[in-house]
């Protein structure tokens, strides 16, 4: 008994923490989403599937769900386009440069998400840096609509989550022996062929986990859509927070949040199947 305890006591605090404050609360959310609504309290007595019915029958919510997932997919794709060349660049950079470039990639992580989103509002706003510069140069007369729309949200989200694409790809490329590329060239492969046949397959596991990570983070982000999207583009998370905090409708808010989580999970699974992902 004492030997068993000695080996397992190390995991006890973490296990208790995760059981009490992740497992139970998540089960509770599931139950909550099926409770009856109430006007005076967060939820009423008895159970009802009303929250889900409302979500799937009202196009306003249904479209928001689709819109949110679409923004997540776009963000993941933009991060892939921007992140892959950067990851390759860093993996091939000399030791001295690598530290600096690594620092630049990690820098958004060291700055809070509120500050980063705020930075984008300064850049993209109607009187923001970009519009003001273009106007002063006489290139445009009226400000370009860069903010309070999907474009602004995707740009800001891509910035916020780019490190989560670059880091896994870098991790995957770390095992790449530089001699492999040379070996392929010596066998008659062109630079592009080396990329397509050697580098890309090696980076693939990193791209997959990076894309999933970015997608999940983007879909469930709140600050960036709230600040950059303003009130005009409503993502699911913004609606969830509205339902819970402003309208005090816990069952409906839970139903919204769970539907988002489940549909995001389905997209992740489909993506993994399509790209023949090997789960680690």
């Amino acid at each position: 008994m004492s030997g068993l305890f000695r080996r397992h006591f190390l995991i006890l605090p973490a296990a208790a923490l995760l059981f009490l404050f992740v497992m139970l609360p998540y089960v509770n959310v599931l139950v909550m989403s099926l409770r009856a609504p109430s006007d005076s309290t967060p939820y009423g007595e008895g159970f009802s599937a009303g929250g889900y019915v409302k979500l799937f029958s009202d196009p306003y919510y249904f479209e928001a769900l689709g819109q949110t997932l679409w923004l997540g997919v776009l963000t993941a794709f933009v991060c892939f386009l921007l992140g892959l060349p950067i990851a390759l660049h860093i993996s091939q950079a000399s030791r001295r440069w690598r530290g600096l470039l690594y620092g630049i990639v990690l820098s958004p992580l060291l700055v809070g998400i509120v500050v980063r989103s705020y930075g984008w509002t300064i850049l993209l706003g109607n009187t923001g840096v970009i519009n003001a510069t273009l106007r002063n140069l006489g290139l445009i007369e009226r400000p370009l609509p860069l903010m309070y729309n999907s474009f602004g949200i995707v740009v800001a989200l891509a910035h916020v989550f780019l490190p989560f694409m670059v880091l896994p790809v870098l991790g995957a490329l770390q095992g790449l022996d530089p001699a492999v590329g040379s070996a392929a060239r010596s066998l008659g492969a062109s630079r592009f062929t080396v990329f397509r046949r050697i580098t890309l397959p090696l980076a693939m596991p990193g791209i997959q986990s990076g894309a999933i990570l970015v997608f999940v983070l983007a879909v469930s982000s709140y600050v960036t859509p709230a600040l950059v999207g303003g009130m005009r583009v409503k993502t699911m998370t913004v609606m969830v927070v509205d339902a819970l905090i402003d309208q005090f409708q816990w069952p409906f808010g839970s139903a919204l949040a769970l539907s988002l989580a489940v549909s995001a999970g389905v997209i992740v699974l489909v993506f993994a199947r399509l790209t023949r992902m090997k789960w680690k």
Binding site: F21, L24, P25, W250, G253, S254
Partner: peptide, 18 residues
């Protein structure tokens, strides 16, 4: 790693209710 994998906002809601 679950708290990292699960959407933070959902974890936050779950904890609030709990």
């Amino acid at each position: 790693l679950m708290p990292l994998i699960l959407p933070e906002i959902l974890t936050a809601i779950a904890l609030l209710f709990f």
